[in-house]
Nucleic acid binder design. Structure first.
Lengths: 118, 118
DNA sequence: ACGAACGGTAAGCTACGACTTACCAAAGCC
DNA sequence: GGCTTTGGTAAGTCGTAGCTTACCGTTCGT
């Protein structure tokens, strides 16, 4: 269902392989073959993931001979993180105080007498 | 305690409907029917999502007559957010400095960078 | 120029997850 | 007690994301 929002960061990082690639690229730039050798998936699979990541602006590629070195795009990464943070901001808005309060008690049994609807 | 091996936080929030439910529940506790009425999916679908969320410790349910009111579990929410933050911490380790540096240059979301690579 | 290395793309298969309808259980209301 | 409301569960369908193999272009080495 695309009724909610356009494809967001969750779809991109929702895939474990993609997350692994990002983490791997966070260490240092790597060629496609290197990534494929590290990950438990084939090289074409890596290529496809890289395409998604590149399309999302998360990575940059750079030709180096017959190889093609990929690296994280800082701007894209921070932008995506920003986007995900927005979700938390919206979700925890007027709610985090309850979170902290609840964490102190460690018990979710706040005695309530009002259970009526709105 | 959560002895479950909860699926990755990304998998849980990877679904748009689930995110919508979480956001909806962040506003205020709601019954299943209310959620189903708000969302573009059927009531059973909501139930199934709620099961996933509850299994992940993200929501608590409370019987209220024939209805069942669901609400966010603050501890679970913060735990999950913590989990996701761990990813960023690991990813941006030794990398965030570059990110911040780049953020200054590309605040307005620089479209592309052409590198005249030889 | 020929062969090897490297990588992207196409086509196809498979698996899983999300959604639906149908049915059943539990609790209120008259 | 019987009907209504509300939810959870079962069973089944369907779409799609991810992976693989096969193939082709490009670039380097000799």
């Amino acid at each position: 269902m695309g009724t909610y929002q356009r494809p967001d960061g969750w779809e991109i990082l929702g895939d474990p392989s993609r997350r692994a690639i990002v983490e791997c690229l966070a260490e240092r730039p790597r060629a496609v073959g290197e990534l494929a050798d590290t990950l438990p998936i084939s090289r074409p699979a890596v290529s496809q993931h890289l395409k998604v990541l590149k399309d999302a602006g998360l990575v940059d590629d750079e030709a180096a001979g017959t190889r093609r070195v990929y690296r994280l795009n800082p701007a894209g990464v921070s932008a995506l993180r920003d986007q995900l943070d927005m979700f938390w901001k919206r979700t925890l808005q007027g709610f985090e105080e309850i979170v902290e309060d609840d964490e102190r008690n460690a018990v979710t049994e706040a005695p309530e007498q009002d259970e009526g609807k709105s």
